[in-house]
């Protein structure tokens, strides 16, 4: 068991290394001079040279790479061109809203999507199923920001039920947090709900066709227990997997949601960095988000062993 966990943890190392290489290569291997692009159209030669030096682009490529890896290992993600502050400090300042938003979204989405998916699978082929699936396609297709603006328009501007902008910390202002987080959570959760519902339905449906479900029915087991004791427990692994993989969608969506609702989180940090051409911040954030994603999926993988006795070390 411990060996398995150790091995799974170790297996993230090459993936993280490749992520680091990809992010490193992104700046160095794109055609054209990235320093010129980053400096922008009105930049002077001096500004370009300064950017080149600050990104270390004037060093030989292997030296650049070694420096980059060493710095990552030391927790140094570079320095913002615009504010001259360490990227890690900036990320630390903006961490809370994003974490809170993703947390509420995951909890909200999973508690809606899993029952919905099981229900759809159980009623497969009926109108209930078709309605739930239509809702899921809708969730996939509605761009996060369009949904966000529709919600703001309806509940913020027309009905005036909820504040349309900003973020309050749950530690200082729980009520304010609750009222500001509702719409972003729904907005961000939509596509995630669509995804998890779909996969839950599909996996439960597949399991329902298995021989052991027939065995359970042949024992005289009641339908409710067939569904929850036999089916859902077997479908848990693909559902857990998609919850993990879906985190990537959530991270992308958070960037947009924070922009729409003006939440001062990491997503806004990205958008501000895009506008200011502050490449080290973008690079650092991609790295942090990717590593978070890898670690979450590793934790879910380890959790599998608790769910499914077949998966063994």
């Amino acid at each position: 068991m411990w060996l398995f966990i150790l091995r799974r943890v170790a297996s993230t190392v090459p993936v993280m290394l490749i992520v680091a290489v990809v992010i490193f290569a992104m700046l160095r291997l794109t055609p054209g001079d990235p320093a010129v692009v980053i400096a922008g159209d009105q930049a002077t030669a001096e500004q370009i040279a300064r950017i080149r030096a600050s990104l270390g682009l004037d060093l030989p490529i292997h030296e650049q790479f070694v420096t980059w890896i060493v710095h990552i290992l030391q927790g140094d993600l570079g320095t913002s061109i615009f504010t001259n502050m360490p990227v890690s400090t900036l990320i630390g300042q903006r961490l809370e809203p994003t974490m809170m938003l993703t947390l509420t979204t995951v909890i909200f989405s999973v508690s809606v999507a899993v029952p919905l998916g099981v229900w759809a699978a159980w009623r497969a082929g009926t109108w209930t199923d078709r309605l739930i699936m239509m809702f899921s396609v809708l969730g996939f297709s509605f761009p996060v920001f369009v949904l966000g603006y529709l919600l703001i328009y309806q509940f913020g501007l027309t009905l005036k039920w909820l504040p349309t902008q900003g973020y309050k910390s749950p530690f200082t202002d729980p009520l304010g947090f609750a009222s500001t987080i509702v719409m972003p959570t729904i907005t961000l959760g939509m596509i995630y709900i669509a995804l998890v519902t779909r996969i839950t339905r599909a996996s439960v449906l597949e399991v329902l066709g298995e021989d052991y479900i027939r065995t359970a029915r042949a024992k005289g087991q009641v339908e409710r227990k067939v569904l929850f004791r036999h089916a859902l427990k077997n479908a848990a692994v693909p559902i857990a997997t998609i919850i993990g993989i879906g985190i990537a969608l959530l991270i992308g969506g958070a960037v947009v949601t924070e922009t729409v609702f003006n939440i001062p989180g990491l997503g806004r940090l990205v958008v501000d960095a895009i506008l200011r051409r502050d490449y080290p911040i973008i690079q650092g954030l991609i790295l942090v988000f990717s590593f978070t994603y890898i670690i979450i999926n590793m934790l879910i993988d380890i959790a599998y062993t608790m769910l499914d006795p077949r998966i063994r070390y």
């Binding site: 090459p14 993936v15 993280m16 290394l17 490749i18 992520v19 290489v21 990809v22 992010i23 992104m26 700046l27 794109t30 055609p31 054209g32 990235p34 692009v37 980053i38 990537a248 969608l249 991270i251 992308g252 960037v255 947009v256 990205v270 895009i274 051409r277 490449y279 973008i282 690079q283 954030l285 991609i286 988000f289 990717s290 994603y293 890898i294």
Partner: peptide, 24 residues
């Protein structure tokens, strides 16, 4: 496959943002 795993570990939108911001 390891490279694909790596690429898939970077949230798509962020990867695209990164690529656009270095190449204009």
């Amino acid at each position: 496959m390891r490279i694909m795993d790596g690429l898939m570990s970077i949230p798509g939108i962020l990867l695209a943002i990164g690529l656009v911001s270095v190449s204009g």
